[in-house]
């Protein structure tokens, strides 16, 4: 596997007034890696992801995403990443084709390319029969596959996934992970955030945040060994102890 780094974070600090949301984070994510970004509610994950995706600037420190500086070139970052959330990704009252066209337009792709990619995508997903169907008529599993493909439409170097397989049946879930593996094998980095530790088990490496800091970063297997745990969930509960009352 190539060792290019598509995310480089050095001493990232983000403050809101006197509150330190990200406290000196440093980590790298490799090309084609499936990286799980975990932490309890309020640990600072969302703040970090907003910076990594060009929506917010760091207070200090260096953040490079897809070769661009998150402090100076956030617009370039936005063009080079994809995003998909389990909660919202597609417009439910538009058709499959309309959604693809809309996202292509938003990402500033040329019409001819959008058309070509739309055809490829429909073919690859076996979606021909659904092209003119409204999203809300599609089963959840199909919607999810489409949402993921749409997030990759503009050929980003990194795709951010928020709880990608929450709530889907076990077969759909596996088909979705297979798509993720395929994507990663093709050199695209997959950055997964989730509350569900069994999703974390699928990642190449995971980091766990607590109180604004990264407190663990390794492969799931190494973390399980280190913390003498049989699952990532146990690891997480052992090390991510948020203040029980504030939680």
């Amino acid at each position: 596997m190539m060792e290019d780094k598509v995310i480089i974070v050095r001493n990232l600090v983000k403050k809101f007034g006197s509150f330190v949301a990200n406290d000196n984070l440093s980590f790298d994510v490799n090309r084609g890696e499936i990286f799980g970004f975990l932490g309890a509610n309020g640990a600072g994950k969302t703040t970090a992801i907003r910076i990594l995706s060009g929506l917010s600037r760091p207070t200090s420190g260096e953040v490079m995403v897809a070769g661009y500086d998150a402090g100076k070139e956030p617009e370039m970052i936005k063009r080079n990443i994809g995003y998909m959330s389990q909660k919202f990704s597609l417009y439910e009252d538009l058709t499959v084709k309309e959604n693809i066209m809309l996202y292509g337009g938003i990402y500033g792709m040329k019409l001819a390319i959008i058309k070509q990619r739309t055809e490829e995508l429909l073919e690859r997903l076996n979606f021909r029969d659904y092209a003119n169907r409204i999203i809300s008529d599609l089963p959840l599993g199909l919607r999810q596959k489409l949402a993921f493909s749409v997030a990759l439409l503009h050929e980003p170097r990194i795709v951010f996934l928020d709880e990608p397989t929450g709530g889907v049946d076990p077969i759909t879930r596996r088909q979705f992970w297979e798509m993720i593996y395929e994507t990663a094998a093709g050199g695209i980095t997959v950055f997964v955030t989730t509350h569900y530790m069994d999703e974390a088990e699928y990642c190449d490496r995971i980091s766990i945040m607590n109180d604004g800091k990264i407190v663990a970063l390794d492969t799931p297997e190494n973390l399980k060994q280190k913390y003498k745990a049989s699952t990532v969930e146990e690891v997480f509960i052992k090390i991510a102890r948020p203040d029980r009352i504030q939680s």
Binding site: A40, N41, H195, I237, A240, P242
Partner: peptide
Amino acid sequence: TTGVDAVSRSE
């Protein structure tokens, strides 16, 4: 427990 982190879920 949907949308709740692992620690709160376990609690």
